[in-house]
Design a protein around this nucleic acid. Structure first.
Lengths: 191, 191
DNA sequence: GTCTATATTCAGATAGAC
DNA sequence: GTCTATCTGAATATAGAC
């Protein structure tokens, strides 16, 4: 993204700290300490704490949007589309564990206007998931039922990847995780 | 619980506000405003904001502990035990949506010692879930696989009930929800 | 870019009168 | 139990010298 290594280090550190503490509990003072500089220096890299949050949240939101749009436009059948959604989540999670954590926990601290935009995009994303399930039911490959309910179950099943503690993911193999989660969402736990 | 109606109203309001805003973002000032009194009055009902959080978290933790222990000690087979766990979650969620929300989001704001206790209990709860899956695999009723992975998938599938917005639950029927979630966890989405 | 110093706001909590 | 007044600390952010 940014080729400036100072700025990169700043954003990496800020993201990690915000993920650990949560937006409200993270302080610019603590961030400065971790960076090894004075608090005032932070404002060389960002205008405000709000802006920091905004950048992280919308970067991830954009990646989800782009990913789901490509899946939607593909010629896959519903099951293949669902598998691709799972793959998308796994990839984004393993590439940006801290950002995903912030994405799911701290959106409510955006200021009013930006939050509206954010929630509109999230809604749009969820609608596309429901469309896939709807297609699956029509194709006869998925159990019929309430679309919103299935959407919640699917997204929820993927969510523990980024709500759980980060260290636990360190020695996990993304390909293996993808296989197992796909199996769980498609077939459940019963033999 | 408490027969004092003033105190009950206080705790109900505090719980609701803490669930809405999150522990850090909730202020005693705002709580006072919502109660229609001065901020200093709050300290007639609780010693501190910390204590408030502590009470809510451990009340719910105890209910989970009691519930899972009863299930563990039953003569049910693994599938029936898993169904009972799902039922337990649904019941607790519909009875105390705000407390469950706090339980999952704000435990990290407990102070060190109490957090240790809290996490130890949570770990113990999760172990009991894994034991059930282990039993299911042994009985041949559940697909074999990593126990911790299944535990995460199961708990995650139940979690959207209390992370999602409260109003959306208003017109849901707990019995219907239980049936659908059970079906999803056991058999997945594929037909 | 780095610092010191500071402005401003707001938080949790307490003292003490009624 | 209720209030007013206040203490104390900590937060975000900025000004300005080097």
């Amino acid at each position: 993204m940014d080729k400036n290594p100072r700025k990169e280090r700043f954003f990496a550190t800020a993201t990690q700290l915000m993920s650990e503490k949560g937006y409200k509990a993270m302080t610019m003072r603590e961030l400065a300490t971790r960076l090894g500089c004075d608090k005032s220096n932070i404002y060389n890299y960002t205008r405000s704490k709000q802006e920091l949050l905004d950048i992280i949240l919308f970067e991830i939101a954009d990646k989800f949007h782009k990913g789901i749009s490509e899946i939607e436009d593909s010629s896959y059948d519903a099951i293949e589309k669902l598998k691709a959604v799972i793959r998308l989540h796994i990839k984004l999670t393993f590439d940006n564990p801290d950002k995903l954590h912030i994405h799911v926990n701290d959106w409510k601290f955006l200021d009013q206007d930006r939050m509206k935009v954010f929630l509109r995009r999230r809604k749009s994303y969820e609608k596309k998931i429901e469309k896939i399930v709807e297609l699956g039911i029509k194709e006869g490959s998925m159990r019929s039922g309430d679309l919103s309910f299935y959407k919640n179950c699917i997204l929820s099943s993927l969510r523990w990847l980024y709500t759980s503690e980060i260290p636990s993911k360190k020695n996990m193999n993304p390909v293996e995780v993808e296989k197992n989660i796909t199996e769980f969402i498609l077939n459940g736990i019963k033999k």
